[in-house]
């Protein structure tokens, strides 16, 4: 994976496969504390202790089309390469929480990448699922809740051309909100 936004897309696709109807994605960048954390939390079917232990094994998967599952092991390796780690909390029937921590300034930390494309892909590919995306950078916060966008559309589908336009417009604000309205060079 070229950047962390692609990892996030991949892990959230696991949540979708686990029948989640709400997925919360939280990114926290704190340059003062030299930390970056990514959290993906869902209310899907969850995993028992045995599955959680095997989840970081690249040759373990619940899928039947292939014999390997690389999503979580790849994110875990990316975190370790940047002096971080990955933790999984899960309970059957309650959902799963994946958290990856990174040293912000580490030379091997992958760039965050295009989060607006990741969120757009997740929301438009799965309009029936509610997504809450919170991005904290130092003291600034951007938050997107697709339930609010759905209410703006008055019953028209989120995946309609109008829905796509509204979501794109909202996502354009990420950079501005996270820099407190200042332009970054």
């Amino acid at each position: 994976m070229e950047d962390l936004s692609l990892h996030i897309l991949d892990i959230a696709e696991n949540s979708i496969a686990a029948n989640a109807d709400t997925i919360e994605i939280t990114i926290s960048e704190d340059e003062r504390k030299d930390s970056l954390s990514i959290e993906i939390k869902d209310n899907g079917m969850g995993m028992d202790e045995k599955k959680v232990k095997k989840a970081l094994d690249p040759f373990y998967t619940t899928k039947t089309t292939r014999r390997f599952g690389l999503g979580l092991p790849l994110l875990s390796e990316s975190a370790k390469a940047a002096s971080g780690n990955l933790t999984i909390k899960s309970r059957p029937g309650e959902g799963t929480q994946i958290k990856a921590d990174f040293q912000y300034s580490h030379i091997d930390r992958k760039p965050l990448g295009d989060m607006s494309q990741t969120i757009l892909t997740l929301v438009m590919g799965n309009p029936e699922i509610d997504f809450v995306y919170t991005h904290n950078k130092n003291s600034q916060t951007y938050c997107l809740d697709t339930r609010k966008i759905k209410s703006q559309l008055n019953g028209r589908p989120l995946s309609s051309p109008e829905g796509i336009r509204i979501l794109r417009e909202d996502l354009k604000n990420i950079k501005m909100k996270l820099t407190g309205g200042k332009h970054e060079g």
């Binding site: 994976m1 692609l6 897309l9 991949d10 696709e13 599952g69 690389l70 999503g71 790849l74 494309q117 990741t118 757009l120 892909t121 438009m124 590919g125 589908p157 995946s159 309609s160 051309p161 796509i164 336009r165």
Partner: peptide, 27 residues
């Protein structure tokens, strides 16, 4: 959108579809 698809560029592909849906204005 499996791990393989995402790593190979599937996000750019779905973005192209969404842009075309917007252009076509088809519901």
């Amino acid at each position: 959108m499996g791990t393989c698809g995402i790593a190979a560029g599937a996000r750019k592909v779905i973005d192209a579809v969404l842009k075309e849906v917007e252009k076509s204005d088809r519901q």
